[in-house]
Nucleic acid binder design. Structure first.
Lengths: 225, 225
DNA sequence: TCAAAAGTGTTAGGCTTACACCCATGC
DNA sequence: GCATGGGTGTAAGCCTAACACTTTTGA
């Protein structure tokens, strides 16, 4: 195929995007990884991502690579950090623009693809050895997730559009890794006026049905307080 | 010189760094700009920055370009955001990794250089028309500066190593664009245990001398609260 | 009737905010 | 002695955190 026909006066690095996609699965914060089909690091686990097309927006590239390698789309996505250590890739100089992504826990079954032998979810505290500097990227993403939790409405991106207050509290408890007081949590959350009752109830299980809420302005992650 | 001898199988974008350097000058938040010596946008004002060397770390590139174009070094520097709109530069596809920088107000006299016809400070609210997407970058940097003010010790990066509480309060007032209560400001600042008295006094002017303080741990910007 | 999760208020303490006068110096 | 900025404490209100029992349902 292409035979080194793209030439420049000065050396150019390659640019990739990599995505740290989080979801809560089985009450655990988990990360989506792919197993590399090709060298370098063939067979090792890594973040989904790949090379930027020359006419492609950075965020589009992140979305496209996530879709191609895992079959997942329509998640919350924001830029995380750009990694550019000259030795981070053994092939050539590669700058990676990384993204931080969240998805709802339900119905995300990753599929394999040509660049990825397979894709799978891993609990954040049970990650396999990772290719490149991807461990570092995941740790940074985790810190970003935790800090945004306290000053934004980002947690709703990890829930379906309709949810109970107990489900919402559970997201916070899993992410913060601590138990929260039910009365204080509900009082504080309702006082922010970012969620509203739908009028519907979830009657699942042998106990009192729970009110189902939704986000008032579901399209945007807002900065609060 | 070099005649397109750097060739690749696939097209590569160019990578630059650009730096938004803030300082307080004449009681005003100001940004350092350079006037472009070459096309595109020759003669227009722009952020200091330039192309990444192929073996160079991203942060080193930001520091180097700042030094080359303005003669300024040793400032606080952190990565801001990576801009990659495919049309942001008319020459070729260019990804810009931008940095947010702070310096002390005193003794920063920029000089010109080969890439910059001249360098100069502009008050943030009196910026000239800017090349590329540099306006957008500056606005993002300003938002970052304001938000970090409330949860980190970043303000000390805009002061010399020894300062009075009035000088410190003045930095906050200029950045926040509001007046702060003197007693509350001092109480709150001292309660954080991040500054200490030096034992010295500033006797400047016909009034009571002010205690001179310093940061306890001057090397690091810390997250507080 | 029992088990399981949903739902609901009050109080104490800490933090934030508002506010006004004396102090040390140079001229 | 006067003008200039430096330095200091208290009280009210607001926000945060701690804490336990009743409700509704399915089995």
């Amino acid at each position: 195929m292409a035979a080194k026909k793209h030439c420049y006066d000065y050396p150019h690095p390659a640019v990739t995007t990599d995505v740290v996609l989080f979801a809560i699965r089985q009450q655990t914060l988990s990360v989506l990884l792919i197993q590399r089909a090709n060298d370098p690091f063939q067979g090792m686990w890594a973040l989904p991502g790949g090379f930027l097309d020359i006419d492609e927006d950075l965020e589009s590239c992140a979305k496209r690579e996530l879709m191609e390698e895992t079959g997942i789309e329509a998640v919350y996505l924001e830029q995380l950090y750009t990694f550019g250590n000259p030795q981070r890739d053994p092939r050539e100089r590669i700058i990676s623009v990384t993204y931080f992504a969240l998805s709802q826990s339900d119905s995300l079954s990753p599929k394999a693809s040509s660049d990825a032998a397979q894709a799978a979810w891993f609990p954040i505290d049970e990650l396999p050895a990772l290719a490149f500097d991807h461990s570092e990227i995941i740790q940074l993403a985790r810190r970003r997730l935790l800090s945004k939790l306290s000053y934004s409405t980002i947690a709703f991106q990890m829930l379906p559009g309709r949810f109970t207050l107990s489900q919402l509290q559970s997201v916070y408890e899993i992410l913060l890794d601590e138990n929260l007081d039910k009365r204080n949590f509900r009082k504080g959350m309702l006082a922010r006026n970012i969620i509203e009752e739908t009028g519907e109830y979830s009657r699942s299980g042998n106990h009192r049905p729970a009110k189902i809420y939704r986000v008032v302005n579901p399209s945007r992650v807002e900065i609060i307080k």
